[in-house]
Each structure stands twice: as structure tokens, then as C-alpha cells.
Design a binder for these strands. Structure first.
Lengths: 332, 332
DNA sequence: TTGAAAGCGTTACCAC
DNA sequence: GTGGTAACGCTTTCAA
């Protein structure tokens, strides 16, 4: 009735049990259409159930050369920004029959290289990069034989496959909105860019200010963290003419900004308005709730996984629009 | 100089290049000690480098029966509570030479079963469960042949391997702290337990109240989300004698509670004190910063991965203490 | 210290 | 429709 031994059931056992060859079992397991008669198919299915047979993933992978694993390189998952990507990518991957092999770098710059190496060694079919440092280097490390995409890039990168959001358009919407509230002194707080040339948000902020003939105060550049946001408020508010509104380069930054503002006894949006960037889930639960522009997480994730499946190694760049989410931190 | 074809380099190629047998290549790759002379070793390493050889993970896994993959079943990663676990587990796993294969259920109750099935089909060596529903059922699904641990369990479960935190002790610390501030009406807000018998936090709160001869107001049970926390505040504060302090069953819940309190124009901790449970990173960045008890994420993660490695199928239960983190939401 | 060779569980080509 | 069987790339025993 039940197997005495723990030896795993193989396709050979099933074949014997069903009185067919191993090839037929393979056909049935892989739903090979038309190849096998209904009667046989049923018999095999039955044997599979009776024996509790489970195909061996490693054997299949060895034979087909495909593991169904997508390696995801991402700094951390405690930052909701990355968490949004991870969730969206997991959904996209599983809809398409793949799984995500997590490669957290834990924000360690050299962890990136280690992570990629480990992912490749585990036999991932493809790679998605969502990282901050040494982008192109890490990207190359994947090896040219493997489909890979660089996520969260707003601009095409020569020779690379990228997917991203229209950061410029998004940032413009935020700053325009703040200007629309009548603010004239709008400060910018964000992190320093590490692996990229420039910060499109910063540039867009400058540009919108200029278009409205407004002076852009000196931006505060810190690191992309809540702590960074917190610290930046001193720099910004201790000036002779502090801003009446702050554009934070990320929701995460804004969380720190908000706390620092509260600690100084300033009202938001009464004394200072705040708006930010990313539209992560937690931006709705700050106090006050953040006005922000939402990243198209699902669209980017879906596209990224599709590109991998297309095996597309032709360099190309996809950019999705961002949408303004109006809440109360701006004064609406 | 460079390979014309894209055919992947195998151990056979390396053997030929180095003028040795494939077995020797294997010895070198796996650092088999003493088995091969320094000269040969160097020759092989050289050939490996020249050819750019990378061992094939699937073939190795097929042969050894080990993939080095740990399946992690977890509802979501956007909730910082789970994100803390994911980060800690990833760290623990990679320190021990394994990788985490992510199995997000996306809070879909039936997703749990699908997720486990998918993880097993991908050939994980072992399974870690960090989930809310149908615990034991999902646990059994892993199959008895596979090492697996149920994470985040404060009490032993007959026949299962569990790792958790001392929730009772943690909750007691929080409530005692609130009592120490002179509060007499301390409310409880938390989620409903789904896969478990009872909520130890709730019980501990009741007990501490009783020990101090304090009446425990009717607890508010909602779901474990920011939204749930937000909604619960109405239930609690519209009473005839609203509490002067609130114990939230999780930081996530507390975030919603805080926002609702602010929206009602109540000061924290002035009008109402708040303290919570979990000690996730974001609890330091609410307004005001939350007093909470911290889960021993790293300890639990490390222990969980160790238990898997020990192949320990003997049911056992490990519980780590929780530590009070005093910040400003309690009125300190 | 090194090599030959037997599988590991599949898939898929080719005969029947 | 069905079955035989040669790989896939690796580990490991056993002999040399």
C-alpha cells in the first residue's frame, strides 16, 4: 500500500505501475498534446497519484537547460520602495510560470557582485537588476549569454535592456502641483545618485522652478533613507528664507522629513507643505498622508519579466508614465 | 582565443584543456582536499579561468540531491514585519551557503497551498513557513521527507518544529510599562488570529491588567493591517470612558492607530499614549516614534536555518526573548 | 595522485 | 500511439 522505503518515486516507477514506457509518462506529465491516447493518459495519471510521484526539478532542468528561476538583485526589502518591486515581480513571474530567486545585497556595495555570482551559480535563467551601485558592472557580470534587464531606469542606456518610469514627468507633476498651491520657495531633498549620471527629479524640479521664474533654493543632497530625510530638514529650515514647501525625492525620504518637521513643532501642510515621489503603500499612512507620484510598479515588473522571456538581448528601453496621487501633505 | 560557439563550457572541456580527467576537475572545483597535487590543481584552475567554466547547478543538484534552495512561504513583503524576516533569513541562509526561494502568498488564503506546491516543484531542500492561515495544513503539505520549520510561533505545536519569540513576555513588558506611566484604562487593538488558537498578546494584556486590579476594556479585534488599526480607533475612543493608553498588537496596526488619532485631533502621547509590538525598523519613524517590543528577528532566522541544516525532523520548539524599546509614543 | 565509468531523473528523437 | 534509448553535466566509487 505505502512504500516501505523513503526512496523517491521516479518516472520509471510510474511507467512500471502504469504498464507503459517512461517516454509516455513524460508526455503525460508535460501535457504533450495528441501524443498519447486518453485511456493511457488516465492510466498514467492514476499511477502518478497512487505513487505520489513528483517530477525531479533538477533532472528536468539539466535536460532542458531551464530552471524557471529569475534572479532578482535588489538592495533590501525593508525599504518599501524595493518591496513594491519584489511583490510586483513575484506576481509577474508566477503568472508566467517562473519563480523569483532573491538576491539581496543588503546595501553592501561589494555584496552586489557576490549576489550576482551566487544567483548565476544557482542556475537562474535570467536576471533582473534593481540596484543602486555599479550598475553596469554588475549587469555585465551576468554574462552575455543570459537575458537580463536593468529595472528602474528612466533613460536608455547604450547596449542595455532597461525598464523604468518617466521620472522627469513624475517630478514635474509634483512640482507643478506645489506651484499651483501658490508656493514660491520650494526646496528639494533627495539622495545622492551613485550608479547613475544625474537625478532626473532634481533636474525636473529645477526646470519647473525656472519655467515659473522662481529661484530654486540650494537642494539638500543626503542619502536615500529616512535618516537622510530627517537630517536634511535642519539644512533646509535653518536658512534665512526657509522654503514653504518641500519636494522629497522619495517617500522614504519624506517620512524622515515629516518626522523632523514635527519634532521642530512645524505643522504640515500649514507651516510647510510636503510632496514626494514613488507612491509606495506606506505613503498613505504617514501623518499627514503624502501627496506623491506613483511608480508604475506592476507595469514595470510585467514588462521586465516579458522581456526576459522574449530572450530579448537587443538593447531597448521602456518607460511608463507616473501618476500623481493627491493626499493631504501638500495642502489640498 | 575565444570560443566561436555559445555552447556552454563543461567539465569535459576543462579536463581536455588541462590534460586531466573529468574527475580531477571535479576534485578541484569542490576543493577536495589532499586529493590532487598542487601542480595539477593550478593547471586545472588555469584551464577553468581560460575557458570561463561555470559548474552547472542543475547537474550537480541532480547528482547530489541538493539544490541549496530554502523555500520561504510568507504572505507579503510590503509589511515590514515580514520584510524583517525575509532580510534576516536571507542573511542567515547566505551565511550558510543557501539561497532563499521566495514564496509569496500575497495574502491569498489559497495561495498558500499553491505556493508550497510551487516551491516543492522547484526542488527546494527545505521549507520555512511564516504564514497566517491554515498553518498546519500547509506545513504537512511540504511532505514529511523535507526538513521544515514553522516560524514565528511562541508555543510548541505537537509534532512540529517551531521557532518564535516570547510574545507573552513581550506583551507583558509593554503593558507593565504603560501601567508604570500611571495609565489605568489601557485598551488593546489587534487582529484576529486565523491559524492559531489564541493571541498571547491579548492574553498577556488581560493578565497584567488583572494583576494590577485594573478593568480591561473590551479589546478591539480587526485585521492585521494599517487600515484595521485606523478603523479600530473609532470603536475605542467613542466609548463613554475611552482609554488613556492603547496597546497595539503590531507596529503595523499602531501606524493606523496613530493616523486615526491624529485625524481626530488627539495628541500622542498627551491625550492618548500608544505602545506596540514587533519593533520593526519603521516603528522608529512614525510620529511620534513608537515604544514597542522588538522581535528577535536575527536570532529566529538563524535558528530556523540551523534547524533545517540539522535536518532536524524531531519536533521541538525554540523561543527567544523580546526586548522593550522605549521611544516617545508612551509618554516617556 | 589520477582516471574510468556508473549512474542521478529527465526529455526528445527515432523506430515501430 | 507507444517504446527504446542516448544524452544532459556532474559526483563518486573503485582500480590503477
Amino acid at each position: 500500500m505505502c512504500a516501505r522505503q523513503t526512496r523517491p518515486v521516479t518516472r520509471t516507477d510510474v511507467a512500471r505501475e502504469a504498464g507503459v514506457s517512461t517516454a509516455v509518462v513524460s508526455y503525460v506529465v508535460n501535457n504533450d498534446p495528441g501524443h498519447v491516447s486518453e485511456a493511457t493518459r488516465a492510466r498514467v495519471r492514476d499511477a502518478i497519484r497512487r505513487l505520489g510521484y513528483r517530477p525531479n526539478a533538477s533532472a528536468r532542468a539539466l535536460k532542458t537547460g531551464q530552471t524557471g528561476l529569475i534572479g532578482l538583485v535588489v538592495p533590501e526589502v525593508l525599504n518599501p520602495y524595493y518591496a513594491e518591486f519584489v511583490e510586483a515581480l513575484d506576481r509577474a513571474a508566477s503568472e508566467r510560470g517562473s519563480s523569483i530567486l532573491l538576491g539581496l545585497t543588503h546595501k553592501d556595495p561589494e555584496g552586489e557582485e557576490k549576489t550576482v555570482r551566487s544567483l548565476v551559480a544557482r542556475g537562474v535563467d535570467s536576471l533582473i537588476y534593481q540596484c543602486d551601485f555599479n550598475d553596469e558592472k554588475a549587469y555585465r557580470m551576468g554574462g552575455d549569454s543570459m537575458p537580463r534587464v536593468l529595472l528602474d531606469r528612466s533613460e536608455p542606456l547604450p547596449g542595455l535592456v532597461t525598464v523604468g518610469a518617466d521620472s522627469t514627468g513624475g517630478a514635474r507633476q509634483v512640482v507643478e502641483h506645489l506651484v499651483g498651491h501658490g508656493h514660491r520657495r520650494i526646496g528639494y531633498v533627495g539622495g545622492r545618485m551613485v550608479g547613475r549620471k544625474s537625478d532626473l527629479r532634481l533636474a525636473a524640479w529645477r526646470q519647473v522652478m525656472a519655467e515659473h521664474h522662481l529661484d530654486a533654493p540650494e537642494p539638500v543632497l543626503t542619502d536615500w533613507s529616512r535618516e537622510g530625510g530627517y537630517r536634511s530638514v535642519g539644512d533646509l529650515m535653518d536658512r534665512d528664507d526657509p522654503p514653504t514647501a518641500i519636494f522629497a525625492g522619495s517617500d522614504f525620504t519624506a517620512v524622515g522629513v515629516l518626522q523632523a518637521l514635527h519634532d521642530r513643532g512645524l505643522q504640515v501642510p500649514g507651516d510647510v507643505a510636503v510632496a514626494s515621489f514613488d507612491g509606495t503603500a506606506d505613503s498613505a499612512y504617514t501623518y499627514p498622508a503624502l501627496t506623491t507620484v506613483r511608480q508604475p510598479f506592476d507595469e514595470m515588473a510585467g514588462r521586465a519579466v516579458d522581456l526576459l522571456a522574449e530572450d530579448g538581448r537587443a538593447p531597448q528601453s521602456t518607460v511608463f508614465p507616473m501618476a500623481l496621487v493627491v493626499r493631504s501633505s501638500c495642502g489640498c
